[in-house]
Structures are given as C-alpha cells and as structure tokens.
Design a binder for these strands. Structure first.
Lengths: 339, 339
DNA sequence: CCAGTCGCTGCAAACGATTGTGGCAGACCC
DNA sequence: GGGTCTGCCACAATCGTTTGCAGCGACTGG
C-alpha cells in the first residue's frame, strides 16, 4: 500500500497524493482533488511509510532515551513524563539501557547515530560522559540531560536541586539540635550525589556542627551498601553520630537494620534521613523522613526542551533545577541528650 | 558519510563496499579488497544508515513495547528484561504508553504500523484488545503478550500463573483455619485479576469455607481503592471476614488503614494478603504477606520468543506461565477464635 | 587451444516518500 | 488579441542501501 497505489485509484500522479496528504503542502493541490485523494487514501487504509519519509527528510521522529539502570524504580515516571510530552509532537522514544557502563554507552551512542535518531535524552549521565555527549551534539543532534547533570557540560539539563536537598537534610537535623552527624554517600561519579554531599556539609559546617567523615562512597544505592557503611561507622572507635543522612532511601533502610542489629533504635538513638521519598516509605517502620523530588515533571521538561530545539532554530533552551522538599516522618527526632 | 564516500576513498564501487561490510555477503568480495575497504571505512568512521537499510530490507530492527501504565513500578523490570534480551539481537525497543485507553491504543498501533516496526510486545493487554492485536498480526507483524494475557487469543504469552497465585493465597488463609474470607478485586477487564479471583474462589469453595462477595471491582490498584472497598465490607451488615485477599499490595495497604480506622488490628482481627510483593513491603507495618512473581524474567521470555519468531519461519513459540510463590510475613495469622 | 567455470567487481534498478522544475490551461490586463 | 500571470498537476531526481545481473579476466579440463 504505497503512494502509487492510492494515486492509481484516485487517477492522479503519486506526487500529487503526497502533497495532498501532507498538511504543509496540501494547499498546493486543488481542493476537490485534495478531498478526493484524501477519501481514497482513507478508504484504502493508506498509511505513510515513516521509514521512507525518514530517509528522504532526514527526520526519524524518534528520540533516544538513555537510561542508566532500568531496574531503578525512579526511572519509570521519568519515562512517562518524556513519552507523554513527546507524543503530541509525533515523536516516540527509543529506550536504551547503558547499565552504567561507559563502554556500553559508547556502543549505544554509535548505534543511535546509525539509526539517525532526531535527538537524545540522557537520564543517567555520569561524570566522565561529557565528551561522548559532546560528540553526539557536534553531529548536529540535540542532546538534553535529565535527572543527572554533569558539571561543566554546556547542555540543557533538567534536574532536581540536590545541593538544596542536602541543605534541607542538614537543616532538619540541625533543627533537632544534632551536633554530630554523618552522611552515607552515593556513587562518587554521580553528580547529584556530590551535590547532596556538598549542600549537606556546607550547611553543617556553617552551623558549627561536627560532621564525621565516612571514607567510602557506595557504588550503588542498595540496602546492602547502607548496611555496610553503617557498620563501618558503628565499628569505628569514634563516637557515633546522632543524625545520619543517607543519599538513598534504600541505603537508609540498610543502615537502620545495621543499627538495630547493635541494639540501637531509630530515631531514639540515631536519626536517619533518606533521599528520593520512594513510594510507600511512609509505611515502613520507622516511617522514613526523606527528601522528595519530582520525576515525571523532569521527564516532561526535558522532552519539552527537545521539542523546542527540534522545531525552532534559536539557541538552546535554558536549564532548570527543581526544588526538592523535605518530608518529615518518624525516623528523625531530637538526639538522646535533649530528650 | 555514505557508502559512496567510502567507495571513493577505497577506489571501488559503492556496491562493493556494501558487500564488504555486511558479514553475510563479505565472502563475495576478495579478502584483500575487503580488508582495505574495512580499514578505510573504520578510518573514516563510516556508520551504515539504518534508515536507508530499513527501507530497502523492510526490517527496522525495532520492536514496539506497548505499556499500559508507565507509572506502574512493576513495569520497569519487565522493560529491562526485554531490552537486555533484544540488544544482542541488534534490536531496540520503542516504548509507547496506551494509558489503558482503547482509543489511544488503536492510534498507537496504527502509528506503529506506519513506522514499520518488526514486532510488537504487548504488556498491558485488556480484555477487549484481542481484535486490535489480531489485526496487527495479520499484517505479518509478530505479536507476543507479556505480563497480561487475554483469553481466547492465539498469541504466544508470557505471564505469571495468576490462578495459582489466587490458589496460594487461599491455601495460606485456609492453613490458618480462616473459614470466612473475602477478596478485594482488581479491574474487571484485566485477565490476571479474573484468574486470581477464580483460583481463590475455587480453592475456598473446595475447602467448604465461606467467601463473602464484594460487589465492586477496583478500577485501579491504588491504596484509595483498597480503602474504599474495605470500608464497604466494614459498613455492611454482614459479619466481617477474618481473612482478606487483596489483588494488589497497594490495595492491601489501603485496606489495612481502613481497618485501623475502625480500631481493628492486622493480623489480630483481620489477616491481609497482598499481591505483587512490591519492593520494601517487607519493611511496612505490619510487613505484608504477599504473592511474589517474576517481572524481568517475563520480559526476557517475551523478547526471546520474538527473536525466535523473527529469525526462523517455523510456527509460533509456545506460551509460558511462571509459577508465583507465597511470601509469608506479619500481616497474616490465625483468626481470633483460634488463638 | 577453446569452451566452460569461477571469482570478483561494477552497473543499475529497486525500496517509498519528498520536492524542485516545467508545462499546460485558463484568467487577466492593456 | 498578445503577453503575463497564476493555479494546478505531472515528471523525474533524490535520500543511502541492497542486490540481481552482467562483464571480465583467469583458470581448468578435455
């Protein structure tokens, strides 16, 4: 079922059919032929071949969405935000998982070039990914970052303000008069984690409180890692911090478990604050104080920016940082001394 | 950067380059020219245009994955299973969200035809979707179902055995000697929910126990719906069941809350068993007894089947049903009379 | 030595759409 | 009435690959 079939049935040349069916060129063909062609096309169930169209026009109407880890439950809402915003623009998302592996990412990006995607949304950028992304950009393909930013990169980015998130966590602990705190850090090559750490440390230092350094950073945000890091704190000869900021809710869970194994009770003996406000953390025991941030909105903004970049020639849209909020629940409270 | 550019640089005709670079035809060209061409292509960074190739060959190397609701946290692992299995076959997944709307689904499927996708994985099939899917199938495009099956459809399906899941839930309650039970049902046009209900009711009836009918089914599996349905049970003049099977963990949460609002304690006054074994339900209070089923594996199987259908001409691969398992936690126990 | 074969490569026609160009009417102006 | 303009449509080239076919040496067997 091609243009030619329709043309034959309608008694016109196939180029006329092409023009008649494309809203942008439809006015070039007489209204009566246009109607006739449209009717015939509809009756025959003609559907334009997007592949052929893509070859000729150089537009595939496809946006690649690169995800670090599809197992991460935080990512689904972002994908949804992206897909929903892309759809009215006639675009679709091609999903690829880099599995947080630079070599894989490199291979994937090459493949995407070969597929002639119109644009790329990078949701799992790590610190070393800048050059790779710039290479894509230089090929004339718009690239935007979502969720995770990379410092020093000149690409539109739609992220949460993780520095502020760290600050909120610190302020919350300070408000309970914690004077000795620590943080369980996420991966060192993820910029948001660095920012959380920075916002937290800065605020703690400014208040003259004491931050106990934890040497290691977690390679992933799993409960096991949280458990391991908390054990390290518990096993060290230093006095235990009374307030702890985990860079991930799951790490907070693991840390709480580790504390409980030593007979410590949260929040009586140690306050714990998580990050991400995962669904249902309000029902865990103790319900987790956490930092809430948007996900679907981030995807929507990133897609929005891309649609703009694809349709207009003016400069790249500006980045945006969304403010996270603190959700206070049962896992934080005043330190023992103040009860 | 096209075949022609490479050909010029290598001093051969571009058709020779095409043959030299395709492993399937490479043996048609002399080994020394082949090496030279390969070297030149590599040096120039040539990448074949998949769009043009797709037009000529009629293969886009793209598989559409239709998802009912991207907000559902259960879906991400399925996508991961799909993507991981597709990747080594050189395929990529194009994601589309039907938002559980038949009209939208229709539009999406048409669009997919226009994009000439190689195959379709349908993860969110509802009861009325059979004809639409058959239409795609008739166009020669392989279709497989994942997660949600549809009765009477002759398509390979990779699902969990929800009838068995219902049976397990019933057996568990019976093992505690519950004699009066009820279920909070999920959407009526989702086959897995029907099967859960059927497996549950059958097992309860066979044991001679009593199932209290709840008239309504939930349009979604949200906590609010669970709350609403539980309230209905509590408000009815009939004696309250001692064991309740919710078709979704979130509905179980809502139901527990509703019970607590009436001063009932779970599991002392009423046992609650959920479905899906969502991440972290082991930490909620009370930790939820639930039915665990696979997700990533389902995606992997569906993708596997598609790859087979695309590469070989023999009949459709056979469907598979994975057995769920019961995970016993704190939200279930013996009814009060037996303590 | 010649016909037949074989290995290699070039030629050109597709795939299905888009789009610049040109031609043919009819309308219009003076 | 001749010239110009305008509206409408057909023609054909093009996007970058794939692939059947043909040509052309070289080799081989009789």
């Amino acid at each position: 079922m091609t243009l030619e079939d329709v043309a034959r049935a309608a008694g016109v040349h196939y180029s006329t059919v092409s023009r008649a069916l494309d809203p942008d060129t439809a006015r070039q063909v007489n209204v009566v032929t246009r109607k006739r062609v449209a009717a015939v096309a509809k009756r025959m169930g003609y559907q334009k071949d997007m592949v052929a169209s893509g070859l000729k026009r150089g537009r595939t109407h496809t946006v690649a969405v690169v995800v670090g880890d599809l197992g991460n439950p935080n990512i689904a809402p972002v994908l949804r935000g992206i897909a929903n915003r892309l759809e009215p623009a006639g675009l679709m998302s091609l999903i690829c998982e880099s599995q947080d592996d630079p070599t894989r990412l490199e291979r994937i990006l090459n493949h995407l070039l070969s597929r002639r995607v119109d644009a790329v949304i990078m949701t799992g950028a790590r610190l070393g990914d800048g050059p790779k992304l710039r290479r894509i950009r230089r090929q004339g393909i718009p690239v935007v970052l979502a969720v995770q930013n990379v410092p020093g990169i000149r690409l539109p980015a739609y992220t949460n303000d993780d520095d502020l998130g760290g600050e909120l966590a610190a302020q919350h602990l300070l408000s309970f008069r914690h004077r000795r705190v620590a943080q369980l850090r996420g991966p060192a090559d993820i910029y948001p984690c660095l920012q959380r750490a920075q916002g937290f440390s800065r605020t703690i230092a400014a208040a003259g409180a004491m931050e106990v350094e934890v040497r290691f950073t977690a390679p992933t945000g799993s409960p096991e890692e949280g458990h391991r890091m908390m054990r390290q704190l518990l096993d060290s000869k230093r006095a235990l911090p009374t307030g702890i900021f985990a860079h991930h809710d799951l790490m907070a869970f693991g840390a709480i478990t580790a504390a409980e194994e030593r007979g410590l009770v949260c929040p009586r003996d140690v306050s714990m604050i998580g990050y991400h406000d995962l669904p249902h953390v309000e029902r865990v025991i103790p319900s987790l104080t956490s930092i809430h941030q948007s996900r679907e909105e981030l995807g929507r903004l990133a897609a929005e920016a891309l649609v703009k970049m694809l349709s207009s020639a003016d400069g790249p849209p500006s980045s945006r940082k969304l403010a996270p909020t603190l959700v206070v629940r049962q896992s934080t409270g005043p330190p023992r001394d103040f009860r």
